[in-house]
Design a protein around this nucleic acid. Structure first.
Lengths: 347, 347
DNA sequence: ATCGCTAAGGCAAAGGTTTTCGCAATGTGA
DNA sequence: TCACATTGCGAAAACCTTTGCCTTAGCGAT
């Protein structure tokens, strides 16, 4: 294929097809004004030479590079991954490529990356992060559209996409209510996390709608760890002995709660039902029993971010904070009483 | 900053500084033959206008794009992340940018991405994946260097970097031996995983060097799950009642083993010591007790991949399969008997 | 005063592609 | 046969930067 040195250019293709470079370009891009015969001849020549158009040259001329930058402010962990996957879904394999930039919460690194992205003339930028808390806009007057996903800009003119944590909390509680539970406790992460507060608010709201309140009279704020889940379970059991369900701020806490309940002699879900948050597979499915949990649909969120960015690139920008719905993944840990084969009559 | 429409070009900068574009270019790139006064004038003009050089134009001319492609064959999970971070370490923030391409083990997607990368004239390509098993080369005669990281090419002319699983297994066992354990079992993942077989081989080798063999006379192959860890522990205890240590093929299995041992009334590490593999923080630190485990140093592996790729771009290629050392992260689960405050005299 | 040398900076080409415009050839109708 | 529309293709400009070569000016030495 590659005969001489250097990559083959459109001029080589044109020469082989016996046409001018301009004509070859039109033929390869399906532009009008080219006879069918010529078009085929050009395409065959391109094939034969293994021609790969030079995207740099094209981008230089057209002003579009068909690349986007993805800046993850937070070290790029389990929350960023599905978002990135969703973004790739939206951009299609190879159509638009994404530059991955991990700023590691370092403002200086972030600026370096931003600079580098702008120099490479990306068509747009997606900013993502673990925190759903507000952040400074990445820059001002950037010449390219920016979408924030799982991170939201303090500038309301920017478009920010985040999961609806409050809705997620309500979802969890309504599910527990629907399985007949009424004494529902809540153990969650640190109060300084907006997500923790919102999930708790959603839960309380759903309880209030049913004329109920949180078991023990409050949400138990702590850490996002199993360790805290175990301690939280102890506190909760002491405060609300009649407990028949616990909604947890994330799956790790839920797993800690599950372990401690079992060690205390309480059965999940027969005595106490359990719902987590995040649907982190490795935790939720390894839990004993497997965990019912709220899924933030991060992949769809990423896909939405990609789609919005493309729309903005095409001149249809949007703005503001947009909440995307969560959904519930039901597993063993919240099975209604009396259902399921193993426990028929076990009460 | 941005005054009119369109981005500011070097011609704008040159005009403002009262020089020709060529001179401006030399001044901005620190080339010789420019007086100090002019250089400063140009730099100030660039600053004032917010000039951002067009990397597309530069790349078109110089033949280097200062970008690399990163193709992850496997859906880009916990193993790819540290590798990607390491690659970024090596490439520096903003100096060289990486195109992230997730092929999802789909050969067709992979080819699309490869095509797209070559069109964008990347300087090199890194291929990474979850499997350490051999794979087909991504393509032939690619015009750009390729490095395989956590994935290895069947073509020995390619450079492949993978963790030394065998060494990791030996490391784990030697550590257990050094804490005075002698009856050491091994529970691990499916036999079809090269990594599982290699880790077991390393373990057996280290035992043989001490004149010992695996407790129960074999390695127990199963799944990479906690569930299997619990069942494996049962099998192992039945086969080797005098067991005083277990080396597990990954951290999830180890955690399952830890849980089952505790449920059986055996104490970790007092009665049975435990070593895992992967150093997956969320598992290893949530384990009760926190898990001693083998770390594959994936981040360093990624960094090495980046460095090798840069070397190859600069005309210093290397080739072959290279094994990178693992290291041991010691935590509670393998504390030597009689050490530590909680158990003094507890035996 | 002339020569030669150096330093500083301008000029123009090159890199590969797309696109506009114009030209030629062909076909159509009178 | 001529005027005209249509179709197909070529020529050249444009995108922005870098770089090799050339010009010019300045200076010291002869």
């Amino acid at each position: 294929m590659v005969t001489g040195q250097g990559p083959v250019t459109i001029t080589d293709v044109a020469r082989l097809a016996g046409v001018s470079p301009g004509t070859a370009s039109k033929a390869l891009n399906g532009r009008a004004g080219i006879s069918a015969g010529t078009a085929i001849r050009v395409q065959e020549a391109a094939e034969q030479l293994g021609y790969q158009p030079n995207a740099l040259a094209r981008g230089l001329l057209t002003g579009r590079s068909f690349t986007v930058g993805l800046i993850t402010t937070d070290s790029f962990g389990r929350f960023s991954i599905p978002v990135v996957q969703g973004v790739e879904d939206a951009l299609g394999p190879g159509r638009i490529l994404v530059f991955l930039c991990e700023s590691r919460d370092d403002r200086l690194r972030e600026q370096h990356y931003l600079q580098a992205l702008l120099e490479r003339r990306v068509d747009g930028i997606i900013v993502t992060g673990r925190r759903q808390d507000q952040r400074e806009p990445i820059g001002r007057d950037l010449r390219v559209p920016v979408v924030y996903a799982m991170a939201y800009s303090s500038d309301p003119a920017d478009l920010s996409l985040v999961p609806d944590d409050e809705d997620g909390g309500a979802l969890a509680v309504r599910h527990l209510l629907s399985t007949g539970r009424t004494t529902i406790g809540h153990v969650t992460g640190p109060r300084r996390f907006r997500a923790a507060v919102l999930r708790a608010a959603g839960a309380e709201q759903a309880l209030a709608a049913a004329g109920l309140g949180l078991a023990g009279g409050q949400a138990w704020y702590g850490e996002w760890t199993e360790e805290w889940g175990r301690r939280g379970a102890d506190l909760l059991l002491r405060a609300a002995p009649g407990l028949d369900a616990v909604f947890c701020g994330n799956d790790q806490i839920a797993r800690g709660v599950a372990d401690r309940l079992r060690e205390t002699g309480l059965r999940v879900p027969e005595d106490v039902a359990l719902v987590g948050f995040d649907n982190w597979a490795v935790i939720a499915t390894a839990c004993r029993p497997p965990l019912t949990t709220v899924d933030m649909n991060l992949r769809q969120l990423g896909r939405a971010a990609g789609e919005r960015l493309l729309a903005a690139v095409d001149g249809h920008p949007s703005s503001g904070l947009q909440l995307l719905p969560c959904s519930l993944v039901v597993r063993e840990s919240s099975r209604p009483r009396g259902s399921g084969m193993l426990d028929e009559g076990g009460q």
